[in-house]
Computed example of a mutant assay.
Amino acid sequence: MAFDIKRRPAHLPFPMTDDLTFTVGPEDAGARLDKWISDQTDAFSRARVKAMIEGGALSRDGEVFADPKWKLREGEVFTLLPPPPEDPTPKPQDIPLDVLFEDGDLIVINKPAGLVVHPAAGNWSGTLVNALLYHCGDTLSGIGGVIRPGIVHRLDKETSGVMVVAKNDRAHQGLSEQWQTHDIERAYLAIVHGSPRPTMGTIDWPLARSSGDRKKMAVVGFDRPEGKEATTHFKRIEPYGIGRAKLEGDAIASLIECRLETGRTHQIRVHMSHIGHPLVGDPLYGRPGIPGLRPSDEAAEKALAVVAKFKRQALHAAILGFEHPLTGEELRFETDPPKDFEKLRDVLRQL
């Protein structure tokens, strides 16, 4: 694959901009066009590349080419015309917030699954930050910068649960210090494949960006300099499907509690997958369905239907406890998982 940047052909109907040009090598032949292009650059997601192609932003040999499903042929040359840069400054948006606590220094919210925390490429609006700017005005801490005002910690887009946001720099600094010294109580509920053996323990493996997929994290050895300390304590709360899957008494899925000492990207998802128990529904680190769950009766049929519709990692930030950074008051917040998580748990209980 060859890659370079050049000016657009003058006859194409797009505004002048720097273009990205890709040449298909022998190892890329047969790959799908939109996925291949998104794999070549960190600038755009696959969904964004697909939309750009369908919108006429791609050319092949100087002519517009609008088929994102095209199977590549060796030697083809494609030119992608990036859109004009978007204004990175988040704008206030009237997005409902489930506020658990608020004073002049902090706001604690119960984030729903599906809500991105802060703007980034492909998500410049509709984020938690946009909602906070509308709700709090210009009172948010500036330490996180323009894109992440007030954001002390994050939850993945499809993870629900408790988050705290700082309204001023003193509060932000105080909370950040507690995160750095691990003086935060954080407990998550997750539904995983199988049943961990033993049923409780500690995973203490460093994490780093995956060398094979820029969107994923991976466990690395302690001798790897890029690895960052990551510690997860887990405990099985409830097993599901014992005896029903003919697995000699083992469970086909389990509700577990995870408590974190560190807060690395995708930490619980990667650690649980590493020990052979990925989260149900996890599109990056999991696997489809639930192995061992078969359509044997009405309960199993119902469970299979619910599992098939569950398209996100089954993970909920249930508890967040910390010391108020200005008043010293001990604060602790606990929320129930959202309805889709509860429904998944309920049908698995019937197995």
Rank of each mutant, 00 (worst) to 15 (best):
A166Y: 00
R154V: 04
V108A: 08
L128W: 01
D156I: 09
R197E: 15
H172M: 07
Q173P: 13
V99F: 10
P149Q: 08
H172C: 05
P88F: 09
D87P: 09
S141T: 14
D98Q: 12
Q173T: 07
V162P: 12
D138H: 12
H118A: 12
L133D: 05
Q178V: 01
S176L: 02
E158D: 14
P119D: 13
S125H: 11
L189H: 03
L100Y: 04
R197H: 15
F101Q: 09
M200P: 04
L140Y: 01
I143E: 02
W179P: 02
H153I: 07
L97D: 03
N110I: 02
G122C: 10
W124P: 11
R197S: 13
T127M: 06
V99D: 06
D138R: 10
E86I: 11
A166F: 00
Q93L: 10
H182N: 13
R154F: 12
T159D: 08
I184Q: 02
R186Q: 01
L97P: 00
Q93C: 12
I151P: 03
G137F: 14
L132K: 05
I109D: 00
L140T: 15
V117Q: 03
P83I: 03
V164S: 09
L106R: 00
G137Y: 15
K167H: 05
I191S: 03
P112I: 09
S141Y: 01
G201D: 08
P90A: 06
P85N: 08
S176P: 05
D138I: 13
P92S: 01
G150K: 01
Y134G: 00
N110G: 04
D169I: 12
D183C: 10
H118Q: 12
L189S: 12
H118E: 11
D138Y: 07
Y188S: 08
I107T: 07
A190W: 01
P83S: 08
V152E: 03
V117G: 00
D169T: 10
H182T: 13
A171D: 03
S195D: 13
P119Q: 13
L100P: 02
V164E: 04
I107V: 11
V99T: 04
D156R: 04
P92F: 02
K167G: 00
P112Q: 10
L106I: 07
Y188K: 11
Y188N: 06
D183Q: 11
G137S: 06
P84C: 06
A131T: 05
L115G: 06
G144S: 14
S160L: 11
S176D: 07
R170Y: 08
P196N: 15
R148I: 11
G174I: 01
A187I: 09
V117I: 10
D98N: 11
L100M: 08
E102Q: 14
E86W: 14
V162Y: 00
G174L: 01
G104R: 13
G194I: 04
M200G: 00
V164T: 02
G142Q: 10
Q93D: 10
T159K: 10
V146Y: 06
